[in-house]
């Protein structure tokens, strides 16, 4: 029985290692034939021409544009909501808000995508007078809304972890609740809020369905967020069904997956390290 529990514990690590190994194994052909340097530095993505051109840069930049916009939406709104819930709302409002946020996180991403198609695409098209409303901005805004629950939850935890004594100390020095929040509580929770932003970013960069529906999926270098982009996740999802198993294109898609894996792994690791440092700080 004890062995079984141990095995379950180790399983998570084994699965993670296996995913990495699997991605690397399947990317080998791409790395050898298309070349890492070429893939990461060229901008032409024509996987079906012959010979195929596999420049990943438009996809990486596409992902960065979309997640950048997402971050601009999710961090201010998420942190603001967390401050409201943690510092200004009563217990009843807090409970209701937390439940609603859990619901928000549970809505399938394809539903967010549908709403984006119905509402945001025409809106972006009209506001910026574009030919098409399918842009990095559209996808980014929806992704930002989707990652708000993550940002709120982790930021709220960080604010909650700030000792009540600090708030009282500030109040006892003649500070209003708002002054206390921005002068003491927010800075004290700073690293946790940074981690929350990072985890929100991780959520956004890995999201597939909504961006596939909203960004237009043109695999060209975008000049601004008002152009159509194709993200790394979108590329894998859209093209995987059409490739020859074991072929070069197939392998390149795994290489895209590997890049994505490394980026999200690094983001999550950074966030975890920051959170751990914050935890240590308040334990003393």
């Amino acid at each position: 029985m004890r062995g079984l529990i141990y095995a379950c514990g180790w399983l998570a690590i084994i699965i993670l290692g296996a995913i990495a190994a699997f991605l690397i194994h399947n990317s080998v052909r791409a790395i050898q034939e298309a070349g890492i340097g070429t893939m990461l530095s060229t901008t032409a993505w024509y996987p079906t021409s012959s010979p195929g051109k596999f420049g990943l840069l438009p996809l990486i930049v596409g992902s960065l544009y979309v997640t950048g916009v997402a971050l601009l939406v999710s961090v201010p709104v998420g942190v603001g909501a967390a401050v409201f819930i943690s510092e200004f709302s009563g217990r009843r409002v807090k409970d209701v808000m937390k439940t609603i946020i859990e619901f928000m996180a549970a809505v399938p991403s394809v539903v967010y995508g549908l709403i984006g198609v119905a509402v945001l695409i025409p809106l972006v098209k009209d506001i910026f007078a574009l030919d098409s409303g399918m842009t990095a901005l559209t996808g980014g805004v929806v992704l930002g809304i989707m990652s708000i629950p993550t940002v709120i939850t982790i930021s709220e935890d960080a604010l909650h972890a700030v000792p009540a004594d600090l708030r009282r100390g500030s109040a006892a020095l003649g500070n209003t609740r708002w002054q206390t929040t921005y002068k003491v509580t927010l800075p004290a929770a700073g690293s946790g809020i940074f981690a929350a932003s990072m985890l929100g970013l991780g959520r956004a960069i890995g999201e597939t369905m909504a961006v596939l529906m909203l960004t237009g999926n043109a695999a060209v270098m975008p000049a601004s967020v008002l152009e159509s982009v194709r993200t790394m996740t979108g590329t894998i999802a859209a093209e995987m069904g059409e490739v020859v198993q074991g072929g070069l294109h197939y392998s390149v898609l795994f290489a895209v997956g590997l890049v994505l894996f490394i980026i999200t792994f690094a983001i999550n690791l950074a966030a975890d390290l920051v959170l751990e440092r914050q935890r240590k700080r308040w334990r003393r």
Partner: peptide
């Protein structure tokens, strides 16, 4: 707020701000 500038308080456990 004004009262608390005239009447300061020191707490049971030291609570310096993280600065």
């Amino acid at each position: 707020v004004e009262l608390r500038m005239r009447v300061g308080q020191v707490f049971q456990r030291p609570n310096p701000f993280p600065m």
